[in-house]
Amino acid sequence: MAFLDVKDLKVHFPIKGGILQRTVGHVKAVDGVSLSIEEGKTYGLVGESGSGKTTTGRAIIGLNKVTSGEITFEGKDLSVSQKQSKEVRRDIQMIFQDPYSSLNPKKRVIDIVAEPIRNYEKLSKLEVKKRVQELMEQVGLSPESILKYPHEFSGGQRQRIGVARALALKPKLIIADEPVSALDVSVQAQVLNFMKDIQKDLGLTYLFISHDLGIIKHMCDDIGIMYKGRYVEEGTRDEIFNNPQHIYTKRLVAAIPDIDPKKRKAHQQFRQEVKEEYDKSYNDYFDHDGLAYKLQNISGTHKVALPQKG
């Protein structure tokens, strides 16, 4: 049994329509996603906007209602009622994309970071303060700055406050939803290094959601590629980047800009070839609704969404 196990997760949102606003259909934001993460590893969830990667992360942590499927964390079922899973969920925390809007501007850092502690633990004021100061130190911010407001920090520092809040309850799993997309390149490096450091120090497991394949490659051990709510491919970093099988994965990998201007022409040509292949073989890889097929194992760890043989 893996550390986190998601089986056939579905999250459907109703579409209201007509004069009486009745439910006329469903947006299948997540449509049958299965994944499992080993303890201490980083699992990357990649996809473009609308692929359902964020919804998947939010469903695991309980921010989106699960339509069907199973989520087990350390063998405990998370898809049961909110109340029962509350204790389990304290072990799972989330880091959000935008360090500018995810922190309440009217609250001091101490209140932001202490919020989850106050929700779960009964500590005295002094104990809470001490705990927050420890956390600030852990994320590399000065413990004296706990009385400041978010706007007094730079983007990278704000993201660290977000991390401190996520770490407050000593979680085991952190779901990071595009944690560095809103940051400058050099600050991005800071946060990524830091996330790797605390992973080592605290034995954290990450579910890392991103659209940036460069960062995914840098951070993740295993990777799942999503398209329109379904998986198109899953495998180790090496399998995804060096041996992509699904045409959509190939296209994503080809779309990463190459940092070497000498390879520009070759890379453009390669991308053009992949695009032509994509257009030509689209029907072989997607069903008549333009959705991916079920995953098939092609090796122990590598799965690709291909039509059933025969």
Binding site: V185, S186, Q188, A189, Q190, L192, N193, K196, G214, I215, K217, H218, R237, I256, D258, I259
Partner: peptide
């Protein structure tokens, strides 16, 4: 400070 596409490094350079 950007992740290198060709080789995976452990740490990125931080300014």
């Amino acid at each position: 400070s950007v992740p290198n596409a060709d080789e995976v490094q452990d740490k990125l350079h931080v300014i």
